[in-house]
Nucleic acid binder design. Structure first.
Length: 188
DNA sequence: TGGGCGATTCGCT
DNA sequence: GCGAATCGCCCAC
């Protein structure tokens, strides 16, 4: 499994997002296989970067291959990977993992014994991995991040994104077909 | 300077 | 399935 380098992210979010399904994401020695992501493009009304650069979304306007972490609903942290060329302000939201590594630490941080509730949702997976605003802007190809490309083929589903009010119809949510660790099932 | 809102989760029904 | 919890960010005043 080759390690993902910054050049992997220096492409269209619509290429990168489906290729992240099946890849392995580790943070500080815990994590698993990415089973669900969403693409956000700077021309997209639902993207944080749509309204221009602000202190909050500044990382999205920087070079690709870095982590953009923001707070959602005043409670949860959400993890994004910055994509495309510097200034294009496009990113992939990581929505769910199949937990495989560091299970004990993730169960402790999530205070649950149910493996399906560890990383099945953007806020859940950041809590399980211990990711917060302190990690905003970190490079994805250096510790504590470790990203590895998927080893074989896998069946990727596409569908509408979740929890947004604008551009609801765009099918920019991607998931691993049949995974039990999706935050919500894909409509067939 | 203040009010409204959000890429969510969880518990209760 | 539904609604409360909860607060930083952004824009309008």
């Amino acid at each position: 499994m080759p390690r993902l380098r910054k050049s992997f992210f220096n492409r269209s979010v619509h290429q990168v997002a489906p290729e992240l399904i099946g890849a392995t994401l580790l943070f500080g020695g815990a994590g698993g296989v990415i089973v669900e992501v969403e693409a956000y493009h700077h021309t997209d009304p639902a993207a944080h970067s749509f309204g221009g650069q602000t202190p909050r979304n500044a990382v999205m306007f920087g070079p690709p291959g870095y982590a953009y972490v923001y707070r959602s609903y005043g409670i949860h942290w959400c993890l994004n990977f910055v994509c495309e060329a510097k200034g294009s302000a496009s990113a992939v939201l990581i929505r769910a993992l199949e937990p495989t590594v560091g299970l004990a630490a993730m169960h402790r941080r999530r205070r649950t014994t149910d493996a399906r509730l560890l990383c099945s949702g953007p806020g859940r997976l950041t809590e399980a991995l211990g990711i917060t605003h302190a990690h905003n802007g970190l490079a994805l190809d250096a510790p504590p991040f470790e990203l590895r490309a998927r080893s074989g083929e896998c069946e990727v589903m596409a569908g509408p994104r979740i929890g947004i009010a604008k551009a609801v119809e765009l099918p920019w949510r991607y998931g691993l077909n049949g995974s039990r660790f999706l935050s919500k099932p894909f409509r067939v």
